[in-house]
Design a protein around this nucleic acid. Structure first.
Lengths: 213, 213
DNA sequence: GGGAATATTCCC
DNA sequence: GGGAATATTCCC
């Protein structure tokens, strides 16, 4: 067990940095409070990759837009071949896009590979912590309760409403769990009785037959 | 959308093969019938890596045991540095171990890094399809509920944090409900069998006694 | 775009 | 060893 760690190599061979947690002294998955978290590795890497691209040549591959409110991948081919593997464990443009979608970025041009997220802007590294991964759950919230845009300021009434519904459902689920558990206990008790009955019956039968013979 | 594919590069740059699905013409996550599936990429790579190691030098790094019923990583350091990155997207021995555990391999020696799985044996590539990933069964309460005081959340995010915890707990409760329901179904089925058994036994007994009297 | 599977990481 | 988060892949 402890041996694993001894044997682990940190060669830092190349195309990625495995030491994200070192930088932020935190655990990527500690507690998921939506604000003020250390940003996800993906966001930091993407931000770094844009910051690094201050030379003219790299700007032809990927860069912020003029205002620094979105970014453009000018050359997806070079970006995939040269940039991605230096930051990630792959060179697939579509995997990069998948991550952008996961974190709520929007493609804002049909002509260019231009992506935007309210909290992802040049010079605002500290805002990255406010970008959260989309949850895959969603079944908890009825669709009609969801606000139309995720970027909206949270209307407190909706939120309270949601919370109340959640607590209600939660309470019911716990009650149901208790009932199910009791059902199981009953089932098991009955099972025992049946088995006892069967075994007793077999004994009786045996001796009765023996007596009769 | 379709453009993504056009723009994707398959450079085969180096440390990994992204084209598993090509070999098997199947989808890694198609239908999960327990038998006769195309094996998980991890299993194929690990098997390949052992098959490749027929030269004497690579046998000093990793090899099957004498009977071909388990395998040994003789040199974890070289294995991590040289072998792993040629098959996987990392060079961490512990990540490799994590995968072995996920697929149900057992460490069978305290002195060596020797691992065994009933369905993972030399010359039996076709058995790999019978090895399945372990399912992750979640406990109802998220781990982070156990530690009482977490990082100091701001008053505004406390509520959101709360909500997230609620959603998490909710999700887990639903999962547990399903499991309990299944337990009950099993219980009931067993009950039926026992009752049938009992009644049949009584019939037999009755007629036997009647005949004897 | 996003659902869902597998892979990798990090922690206990 | 395994839980759980993030990353990567593959498919619709």
């Amino acid at each position: 067990m402890a041996d694993n760690n001894v044997l682990e190599l940190n060669l830092g061979l190349g195309n990625n940095n495995n030491n994200n947690s070192n930088f932020f002294g935190g655990h990527a998955h500690a507690v998921q409070s939506p604000r003020q978290r250390c940003p996800a590795p993906f966001l930091i890497k993407t931000y770094d990759l844009l910051e690094e691209g201050e030379s003219e040549e790299s700007k032809q591959i990927v860069s912020w837009n003029a205002e620094g409110t979105s970014f453009v991948v000018w050359s997806p081919a070079e970006f995939s071949e040269l940039t991605l593997p230096r930051y990630f464990k792959h060179n697939n443009f579509s995997s990069f896009i998948r991550q952008l979608n996961t974190y709520g970025f929007k493609k804002i041009s049909s002509k260019r590979w231009e992506f935007k997220h309210e909290k992802f802007q040049r010079g605002c590294r500290s805002m990255l912590g406010e970008i959260t991964r989309k949850k895959c759950e969603a079944s908890v919230f009825p669709a009609y309760l969801k606000s139309s845009s995720e970027e909206n300021a949270t209307t407190s009434s909706t939120e309270e409403n949601n919370q109340q519904l959640l607590m209600e459902e939660n309470k019911n689920l716990k009650k149901e769990r208790l009932e199910l558990q009791m059902q199981i206990d009953e089932c098991k008790a009955l099972e025992m009785k049946l088995l006892a009955c069967l075994s007793q019956f077999m004994d009786t039968h045996q001796s009765k037959v023996r007596r009769l013979c």
